[in-house]
Amino acid sequence: MTTILVTGGTGTLGRHVTERLRAAGHEVRVLSRHTPPYAVDLREGGSGLDAAVTGADTIVHCATSARGGDEQAARNLIAAARRAGAGAGHLVYISIVGVDRVPFGYYKTKLAVERLVEESGLGWTVLRATQFHDLVLTVLQGMAKLPVLLLPARVKDQPVEVTEVADRLAELAQGAPAGRADDMGGPEVRTFDSLARAYLKASGRRRAVVKVPLRGAAYDAFRDGGHLAPERAVGKATFDEYLRKRFPAAAPHR
């Protein structure tokens, strides 16, 4: 039996990875800020992090924070793994398709963490995936709080089902270090406009949809498809299928 540490193990992706690894018979340690016995803020490190990594054969790094600090968190995790001799066999990191092509702040951070992983001296695997269905829905729900849904013009997306990414990440975690794994994209490349209209229909919301041209290098890169992987459309579940599960019988509302 292998001992595997999953950082961010209670999050959108991490909890599914944890379930799959446990089902495969591994001892899985879940590290998150508020879940004992490994309640650790990776940005701060400390003795709790050392205890979490000690004895771990593999580390799956899913933790991320919208508040920033991902680079420091990765440095702390790698340093702890080195001290303990843990994860030396395998450090697995989940990243995003296009982090090296789209000059968007969060993408720059993910790319920086990729480089830390690659230069860690540990065996490593990096999997890049397109945006999860969950993220696209969250963005659209936030936009729908206004009476008009304002969308970036001429931008497409390729959302993927998070459980499918969890399947692949768990598979990689149980194998030998693979370096950069093949990218993983959703089954369809669609305009953001079509995704928004699908969400409105499924949720029963009524909103005018307006496409707005934006400025800047990041927008240009998104518009040019730098975050897409049409040649790696290996996901199976579509956004429409995801919406049917989330809104099985939505009644129209304002």
Score class of each variant (00 low, 15 high):
Gly11Leu: 01
Gly11Cys: 01
Gly11Ser: 02
Gly11Gln: 03
Thr12Ala: 07
Gly14Tyr: 00
Gly14Trp: 01
Gly14Ala: 01
Gly14Phe: 02
Arg15Asp: 00
Val17Gly: 00
Thr18Pro: 00
Thr18Glu: 02
Thr18Trp: 00
Thr18Arg: 01
Thr18Gly: 02
Glu19Leu: 08
Arg20Cys: 05
Arg20Tyr: 01
Leu21Ser: 03
Leu21Cys: 04
Arg22Gly: 11
Arg22Met: 12
Arg22Phe: 07
Ala23Gln: 09
Ala24Leu: 02
Gly25Asn: 11
Gly25His: 08
Gly25Arg: 06
Gly25Glu: 10
His26Asp: 06
His26Pro: 00
Glu27Tyr: 09
Glu27Trp: 09
Glu27Gln: 15
Val28Tyr: 09
Val28Pro: 10
Val28Leu: 10
Val28Asn: 10
Val28Ile: 04
Arg29Lys: 08
Arg29Gln: 08
Val30Gly: 07
Val30Lys: 14
Leu31Gly: 11
Leu31Gln: 12
Ser32Trp: 05
Ser32Glu: 02
Ser32Met: 08
Arg33Phe: 10
Arg33Cys: 09
His34Glu: 15
His34Phe: 15
His34Met: 15
His34Cys: 14
Pro36Val: 05
Pro37Tyr: 06
Pro37Asn: 08
Tyr38Pro: 11
Tyr38Asn: 11
Ala39Lys: 03
Val40His: 06
Asp41Lys: 04
Asp41Met: 09
Leu42Asp: 01
Glu44His: 06
Glu44Cys: 03
Gly45Gln: 05
Gly45Ser: 09
Gly46Cys: 08
Ser47Phe: 11
Ser47Asp: 15
Gly48Asn: 12
Gly48Arg: 03
Gly48Glu: 11
Gly48Val: 07
Leu49Gly: 03
Leu49Ile: 03
Asp50Glu: 13
Ala52Arg: 03
Val53Phe: 10
Val53Thr: 02
Thr54Asn: 15
Thr54Ile: 11
Thr54Gln: 15
Gly55Glu: 03
Ala56Cys: 13
Ala56Trp: 04
Ala56Ile: 04
Ala56Asn: 08
Asp57Leu: 12
Asp57Cys: 12
Thr58Leu: 11
Ile59Phe: 05
Ile59His: 02
Val60Met: 06
His61Pro: 05
Cys62Ala: 08
Thr64Pro: 08
Thr64Leu: 14
Ser65Cys: 12
Ala66Gly: 14
Arg67Cys: 06
Arg67Ser: 14
Arg67Pro: 03
Arg67Gln: 14
Gly68Asn: 11
Gly68Tyr: 12
Gly68Met: 10
Glu71Ile: 15
Glu71Gln: 15
Glu71Asp: 14
Ala73Arg: 10
Ala73Gln: 05
Ala74Gly: 13
Ala74Met: 14
Ala74Tyr: 14
